[in-house]
């Protein structure tokens, strides 16, 4: 059974934890690829309006005895996906990708590492599921789905965003609430 390696969940782990883990499928084949062992637990994406940007979060777990590095990502829900980190409240591309240590985990969370979805062709609506594919250093890929949640956090500035320089803050996930329309 897979449980999140945190004391409070371990005490209450139930069979449902297994089903709630993201279902990941390896798109490449081969016995020893990184994609076969890496998992993303509890992925979610912040709702966003078309043309905007937003982020995907979750916890990457690597039970193997070798580091695994995520080098890129793509999604039908975004024109472009980047691997971001937040430094001093500003987000930027993370050099060298996301390395998940052997036998360890890496959290993608608001205010920290995240997958940045940019140039969104359509609104990402609350409760909708988007599909994202991770590219790993050994060339294998991992596909997962993430439900969209309205969320007020995760509004870091983006240093790459020169067009929006007037605004002190780049809202990377303005609500796609249909009632706003």
């Amino acid at each position: 059974m897979r449980t999140r390696p945190r004391p409070y969940t371990r005490a209450l782990a139930t069979a449902s934890a297994l089903a709630l883990a993201a279902t990941l499928s390896s798109c490449a084949s081969g016995a020893s690829e990184s994609a076969d062992s890496l998992t993303l637990i509890d992925p979610w994406v912040k709702t966003a309006a078309a043309d905007g940007m937003t982020a995907v979060f979750g916890t990457l777990e690597n039970p193997t005895d070798a580091d695994v590095t995520v080098t890129g990502a793509s999604s039908d829900a975004a024109g472009m996906v980047e691997l971001h980190e937040v430094v001093d409240g500003t987000m930027q591309e993370k050099d060298g990708g996301f390395t998940v240590p052997a036998g360890g985990e890496l959290s993608l969370e608001p205010g920290g590492l995240h997958l940045m979805l940019m140039a969104l062709p359509e609104d990402i609506l609350a409760g909708e599921e988007i599909t994202v594919t991770l590219e790993l250093a050994d060339g294998s890929t991992l596909e997962f789905t993430a439900p969209a949640k309205d969320f007020d956090g995760g509004n870091e500035d983006y240093e790459g965003d020169s067009m929006d320089a007037d605004h002190g803050e780049m809202d990377m996930g303005s609500s796609a609430d249909p009632s706003d329309g």
């Binding site: 409070y8 005490a11 209450l12 969320f151």
Partner: peptide
């Protein structure tokens, strides 16, 4: 079931 929700910043 005693776990935080997705996007839950207070799972405790």
């Amino acid at each position: 079931q005693g776990r935080g929700a997705l996007a839950d910043l207070e799972p405790e």
